[in-house]
Design a binder for these strands. Sequence first.
DNA 1: ACCTAGTTCAAACATCTGTTTAAAATAGCT
DNA 2: AGCTATTTTAAACAGATGTTTGAACTAGGT
Lengths: 209, 209
Amino acid sequence: MSTKNKILDAAELLFADKGFNGTSLREITSSAGVNLAAVNYHFGSKKELIKAVMSRYMNELAPKLELALSVIVHSDDKPNLDEVFFAFVEPLLYLNEFKVNGTSIFLQLLGRGYTDSQGFLRWFLTTQYPNVFTHFTKAVHKAYPELTTQEMFWRLHFTMGTIVFTMSSSDALMDISRNDFNNDVSIETLINKVIPYVAAGVGAPIIAE
Amino acid sequence: MSTKNKILDAAELLFADKGFNGTSLREITSSAGVNLAAVNYHFGSKKELIKAVMSRYMNELAPKLELALSVIVHSDDKPNLDEVFFAFVEPLLYLNEFKVNGTSIFLQLLGRGYTDSQGFLRWFLTTQYPNVFTHFTKAVHKAYPELTTQEMFWRLHFTMGTIVFTMSSSDALMDISRNDFNNDVSIETLINKVIPYVAAGVGAPIIAE
DNA sequence: ACCTAGTTCAAACATCTGTTTAAAATAGCT
DNA sequence: AGCTATTTTAAACAGATGTTTGAACTAGGT
């Protein structure tokens, strides 16, 4: 295994667990069993390492996600919101084939990135993978055309918040569920629980201002 | 104004903006115009200062929130979910009387605390203010008795995520709204936008597993 | 005026941070 | 083998962090 990949593998676990700001290069390199200077040699800086960690997942996810959403957009039928959100499930779960616990790790990273580092990841995703967003908003508009652009903007950000927050603390929540309810919840059932929630939220009736 | 309050006032603004980990004691003390050592003299440590900042708001909020929720719980009528969530509005907005921009600052702090510092604030809130949570779950149960305890657990955490994430990035979202839609959104209208969303999410039909 | 308890202050402390350096080791190629 | 480019290494760097120190200062009470 190359040093570069050793670093990426160690970094993503630590980033997911403790956030980007909360993880030092020394933790990463010692966990990866490589020299401290290797990060700056191979990636240039910590910020570039973060981008590389995210890109590895996004490059796997984005094409599959765009395809699944564009099928909905170009279909003749009117989708309902649950279908739109369920389009995420298969591409997300495919990350488990790509890497062990890939789905869970990626979603946790996403959560970390949105709250850590003052919106840097939001910029990264929207500029590097804009098609995912445009396809998604088109699909939602098709399912709920009465929703104004503004209202959709807000509700999609609420949705982002729900997903991202849930996933960034998914380990803690799963622990509570296991202890309090004797109920072991996998990342897949968690996804299946959150989708009806966000679909109902986005589909909520519009309130007059 | 006492040194202690100068520190609290400066700290809450910086914490809300840049997170707990992202704010140094030197930033706080220089913004407050006091000596660096004052924090450790008056509060003992940075962690205790964080608790103090949160407590100042929670002690104001908790009794009002408990009252509003217990009214619903002890009423003879069956509430609907929107009413349960709207019970939060008045107590939250009252924080604006308590401090300028109090509502917004508090909600941002809440958001920061949930993602920073590995769940320390979750522990703090649930142990220091358990009544708020029990009243809340009782009210939700009254409005939606078919929801099992387990399902409610998940949906309430989804809700927490929506609120907390939205509010921690509320400044950025409000900026986008102002620039892209020429639409200036106050914290109050933001609250009124998010409540139908979370109410619909919690009220979503139950899916067979 | 004096003493005492509480408070402020500049300075230092020890530790951690990301990054850079220059020498050493390794690999690939002819 | 010998040369070259790439990679690894230990060490140092410069700056930031939370905390502690001990002296200076400031009330308040007698």
